[in-house]
Design a protein around this nucleic acid. Structure first.
Length: 935
DNA sequence: CTGCTAGCATA
DNA sequence: GTATGCTAGCAGA
């Protein structure tokens, strides 16, 4: 008996957007942003090729790819707001639609795009026709709305996630069988398509009701018996007709008239899969710069062999880096993998030999905590070639009969290799694994690569988790941490995960890391500027690891004293506020505060928050404080409770009890300008401006016999502006060692340097900062408290005196528009996705970011270089001087008191010497018993 | 328990 | 006007 023929229906529209977003910014001419975008085209080709290699769909007799046509559909007639929340298609994608239709046809697929009928309805119609003729139907779509079509003959697969929705699959995923999916969707609604549904009814309630009443009609008949808010909303939705409308909107129309576009129907002959049109396909690939695909077309036999020589991938593939990648494009889930669980000495021996000989080994650790310094090691996974990995369970527990080698034995065997700088290693976010292994007394050496940093350097705006990297660059998806451990209060430790699952997950991580590296590393190598920045990031990672491990000593008693003082003052302010308000209220609640201020006391509304509420922020309170007593109390209360709640109450608790030191985590792949960020706790926003705030720095101390030193770059961003703009007046000011704000004031106000008043200097300082932030006259006016025309006059005057700066700003904005990114002095790329796309305000904001990014980013590069240089010098000659914090333009040290002179001598020179710009760099040092005194 | 807003600390 | 992270309150689970 032969299998019935198969019709393969591809929901082209659902893949368009995913291909567009998942693919990097590919161009017909690589690296030329003005040439046509090709990422979505490429993604689409990869996806169709993957389907040709998926057993279930490879042999399909009929194959159709369905797209939405432009323009309104019949649903818009029923409901004008349908899909009103959708943003318009990006131009970059729109321009790829026609080529996509063309290439799909050339690949032998029937293309259908029916005006007035959505792709979903076309698919529904074709699926029902085919199923009624005994044809097996496979729909390939990422859209779960199609689940209502599923029956014995119709299955949905999601090529990108590997999900498979058959009758049982739908029931498992949604909790209702396919036949009830329409009812389910009608109740739940759809925020994306703007289908209303029933207010406050989500998946849980919908499933409960459908189980109880059997169907939507059953539910409607019994609507009166439903209690609570949900019941009211249900009756309201029934009465208003909204529920009926929702049902109509979500129901796929399986009876569309397609004869104008598929005249052969109901006969399927027209839909037969054709041979691909090799000649024209070749032209097409050439035209769009798909060299690897063109080569594969010329030598198809290459596909048959060596399934293991590249990444198995859906959306990877750069022609330049990995000729094999697209040619072997197979759906991720079809990839052959060999994952091993190491549970015997013999297996461990075998892998020790492998990693010892490997060119590069991917390492990943599994732990029980996201906090690296407290994390316990649960297991280690290793991979030396794609598709093969091993997991060594070490800390699993609580499961009957867990067989694992003793932790101490395994680590003793691994340690020589881990600590050998000559054994090249790779990881994803290696700083974390370094901490975990350091917790076991192992100092890992020989890390050559970190895929997280590769991604950060290449595509700063995109997510850098391994999961997203694997999907984006290799098309692979896998087990998620949540799949294994759950979430919320029911989450279990990784140590409790059954070994087979833990092994699969851990091996996958190491395997995918190696895979992603093979895609990203060639891209970095191909661009000298990025290579330089990547090497800087790798060195910075090591310096950060050291700094995080050092931590900073905290004086818990001092903080407790301050908390006490603040607490007393806060209580007094509360009492005073209650008196003035005539009633008690929560001073921390902007909502209650608004009611007291504007409803009860009748204070004037100064401005609104973005969401329309009456603002009570600092600026508003300052203004109101001129005429009323209560706002001043609020201002003081706000600032004191901020200090108490955020700093004095919290910091001591974050110190490790054993050492009394806090160890922040520096995020190296978060800030889009290249800066670091600090969290748990954030040590980069410890107060300094107000006296009360600055006191908190007294609690950042050095142990007995030691002192704190702070070295900060002076005016670093303005110096970078002078370098980048080449403006002569500004360069001269720095070369002459002038106070730059004073010099600016002298120029702008037309007075001699020694005639500048402190008010004039203050204005000049604000202008200088404004320049770094890409200011407008509007913004300047607001911060200086002057009117718009006066601010514009200052800016004019400034640009007259510093024409080079003006030219630089204009050039930068123009360049940003042209290439959609700007660069730092050292070649870091700062992408500006909104610069051409967005509306007026968004575009203006992107232009300001374009002006700021090279300055902020170059400053970030410089201090990273300084950290690396300083740490290397310390290691070489002063190992008891510790680098303990970085605050954007400042490095903080803890050192023996008698090494202070050495530091004053050496560190500023190192910091100033990391680059030779057109202006000298200057770093200044302070030393004291605590961080406050070190300034 | 989770996600959002308002507000505010730093460079 | 640039770039971050953290807290409290609040609303919907």
């Amino acid at each position: 008996m032969t299998n019935p023929p198969t019709l393969l229906l591809v929901d082209g529209s659902s893949y368009l957007y995913r291909a567009y977003h998942a693919m990097p910014d590919l161009r017909a001419v690589p690296g030329d942003p003005s040439s046509p975008a090709t990422g979505a085209i490429r993604g689409m080709v990869n996806m169709l090729q993957a389907l040709d290699k998926t057993p279930e769909t490879a042999q399909a007799a009929y194959a159709v790819c369905v797209f939405d046509a432009s323009g309104p559909t019949f649903r818009d007639d029923w409901y004008p707001e349908y899909k009103a929340n959708r943003s318009p298609m990006p131009d970059d994608l729109r321009s790829q639609i026609d080529p996509i239709h063309e290439v799909v046809r050339l690949l032998g697929w029937k293309v259908l795009s029916v005006p007035g009928v959505e792709a979903d309805d076309v698919i529904a119609t074709l699926a029902r026709i085919a199923a009624s003729q005994g044809v097996q139907v496979v729909v390939s779509s990422g859209d779960k709305d199609l689940s209502q079509l599923v029956d014995e003959r119709i299955t949905i697969i999601d090529t990108m996630s590997g999900k498979r929705r058959d009758v049982a699959g739908v029931e498992q995923e949604f909790g209702v069988p396919p036949a009830l999916m329409v009812d389910y969707q009608a109740l739940v609604g759809d925020a994306v398509d703007n289908v209303p549904g029933v207010a406050k009814v989500g998946p849980k309630t919908a499933v409960k009701w459908l189980h109880e009443f059997g169907s939507l009609d059953g539910l409607i008949a019994q609507a009166d018996s439903i209690k609570g808010v949900a019941g009211n909303n249900l009756r309201e939705a029934i009465a208003s007709g909204q529920l009926a409308l929702s049902r109509k909107l979500v129901t796929m129309q399986a009876d569309c008239d397609l004869t104008a576009y598929a005249p052969g129907l109901p006969d399927l002959a027209d839909l037969q899969k054709q041979e691909l049109d090799a000649q024209n396909l070749r032209h097409f690939y050439d035209k769009y710069g798909f060299k690897g695909l063109a080569r594969a077309l010329a030598a198809p036999e290459k596909e048959a062999k060596a399934p293991d020589n590249g990444s198995g991938d859906l959306f990877s593939s750069f022609d330049s880096d990995d000729a094999a990648s697209t040619e072997v494009a197979v759906a991720a889930q079809q990839r052959e993998v060999a994952y091993h669980c190491i549970q015997t000495q013999a297996q461990l021996d075998e892998w020790l030999v492998k990693i010892d000989a490997a060119e590069l080994t991917a390492i990943d650790t599994e732990t029980d905590s996201l906090n690296a310094l407290q994390a316990q090691l649960i297991g280690i996974s290793l991979s030396v070639q794609p598709g093969e990995a091993a997991y060594i369970p070490l800390g699993h527990e609580g499961i009957e009969g867990v067989q694992q080698l003793p932790l101490a034995d395994v680590l003793a065997r691994l340690k020589p290799w881990l600590e050998d700088a000559g054994k090249p290693k790779l990881g994803q976010h290696i700083k974390y694994d370094q901490h975990v292994l350091a917790n076991q007394g192992i100092t890992v050496r020989g890390y050559r690569h970190d895929t997280m940093l590769q991604s950060y350097v290449l595509e700063v705006h995109r997510p850098h988790s391994l999961e997203s990297l694997a999907l984006r660059h290799t098309g692979r998806t896998g087990l998620s941490y949540e799949d294994l451990c759950g979430k919320g209060k029911n989450q279990i430790s990784f140590a409790q995960v059954p070994l087979d699952k833990a092994c699969a997950y851990a091996c996958e991580d190491a395997d995918q890391t190696l895979d992603v590296h093979r895609v990203l590393w060639p891209q970095i190598q191909a661009q000298a500027g990025l290579l330089h920045i990547y090497q800087l990031e790798m060195q910075t990672s090591e310096a950060l690891f050291r700094m995080e491990r050092n931590g900073v000593a905290i004086d818990a008693q001092e903080l407790a004293r301050q908390s006490n003082d603040l607490g007393t003052r806060i209580v007094a302010l509360e009492q005073a506020a209650y008196e003035l308000a005539g009633q008690p209220f929560n001073l921390s609640s902007p909502k209650q505060l608004g009611e007291i201020f504007f409803d009860k006391l009748g204070l004037p509304v100064v401005k609104k928050t973005p969401s329309g509420a009456r603002s009570t922020d600092e600026e508003v309170l300052e203004k109101l404080a001129q005429d009323y007593p209560l706002p001043a109390k609020l201002l003081e209360h706000r600032s004191l409770s901020k200090l108490k709640n955020t700093y004095t109450d919290k910091l001591a608790h974050m110190a490790l009890p054993r050492t009394g030191r806090v160890h922040t985590h520096y995020a190296q792949a978060v800030a889009v300008t290249g800066r670091l960020s600090s969290n748990e706790p954030n040590l980069q926003n410890i107060p300094v401006r107000t006296p009360e705030g600055r006191r908190i720095r007294q609690a950042f101390i050095a142990p007995p016999g030691r002192v704190i030193a702070s070295a900060d770059y002076s005016q670093i961003e303005l110096r970078i502006m002078a370098h980048l703009s080449g403006d002569e007046a500004l360069l001269r000011a720095f070369h002459d060692g002038l106070d730059v704000h004073r010099a600016t004031a002298a120029e702008v106000f037309g007075v001699a340097l020694d005639q500048v008043s402190s008010e004039q200097r203050r204005f000049a300082k604000v202008i200088n900062f404004g320049l770094i932030y890409g200011m407008s006259s509007y913004g300047l006016a607001k911060t200086l408290g002057i009117d718009n025309s006066a601010a514009a006059a200052y800016i004019d005057r400034y640009f007259q005196r510093y024409p080079g700066v003006k030219r630089y700003m204009d050039d930068t904005v123009a360049l940003a528009h042209k290439q959609k990114y700007v660069e730092t002095v050292f070649g870091r790329r700062l992408q500006l996705p909104d610069i051409n796309g967005g509306s007026g305000p968004r575009k203006k904001a992107a232009e300001r970011a374009a002006i700021n990014a090279p300055m902020q980013g170059t400053a970030a590069d410089l201090i990273k270089k300084a950290m690396v240089a300083v740490q290397q010098r310390l290691d070489a000659v002063q190992p008891d001087v510790l680098l303990i914090m970085q605050v954007h333009d400042e490095l903080v040290f803890e050192l023996p008191a008698d090494k202070a002179d050495w530091l004053r001598q050496e560190v500023p020179a190192l910091m100033a010497g990391v680059a030779a710009l057109k202006v000298p760099l200057l770093a200044e040092v302070g030393v004291g018993a605590n961080w406050e005194q070190a300034h």
